[in-house]
Amino acid sequence: ARSHPLLPLRDPDCDDPDVELAAMEITQHVNSQLQSGYKYRLNQIDKVRVYPRRPAGEVYVMEVDMLETTCHVMDKTPLENCTVRQLAEHAVEGDCEASVLKMDGQYKVLNVKCESNPDSAEDVRKVCPQCSLLAPLNDTRVVHAVEASLAAFISQNQSTFYKLLEVSRAQISPIQPSVYVEFVIAPTDCGPKGADDPSSCHPLTDQYGFCKGTVTKKDGGEDVAVSCTISVPLVPAPQPDEAVPTPAAAEPDVAIAAGPDVA
């Protein structure tokens, strides 16, 4: 027997509190699924329609806009503390279509499909004619900037052998010959000089370095400036019967910088 399509129950306001809760659930779900790049924050709810669901509950079919933040997906910073990329940084927007089941006061994402796109170069130029535009991550200038930045960082932090995990973002300046890159590194279980076979070095669990590097051409050479924030895993809280004092439960991240003229 052919089933009759369900008629929508209602078209609520996009800023309805229930709709906002569903949108928050979509945002959390999307971020939990990302394995590279940056977290996204909700920017606007575009459409919503509520359908009945058998045997119980309601399904919110929605379209939402999100914006890329400065927090990497492996960064433990809570989403509410992550700032969105501004237009001058060449903002990236995520458009998502999703269905969310509301049942017994709980929201659960049933499915979601997102597409992310950078703002157009024309829009960036309107607000900031001299701002750098996003560049492909496999651009030779980007690859070189990452290699030079990583080498500069390692030259000043030789206590650990670091591995490059990901190149996350790159921007090339339209006026001066400089390339800005963001990448993620991880300390490994190898000593400072690494191993004969670097592939045998394993990244330490849950420890990452979020790095920003700028390479600027200058008088036949180049300047390299790099800084990395190394995330420190949470140390278990001391037990009451422990006699030896231990560090505080949550160590702050460690910022390490090199440059600006290190190479």
Partner: peptide
């Protein structure tokens, strides 16, 4: 006997307000 002037941007009763508010900026 004058009719109240229309309020720009005011939605008619029962018309859903979408899209919703912009939290950061429009791209």
């Amino acid at each position: 006997g004058l009719a109240a002037p229309a309020v720009p941007g005011a939605a008619a009763p029962g018309v859903p307000l979408c899209p919703g508010r912009i939290r950061h900026f429009k791209v």
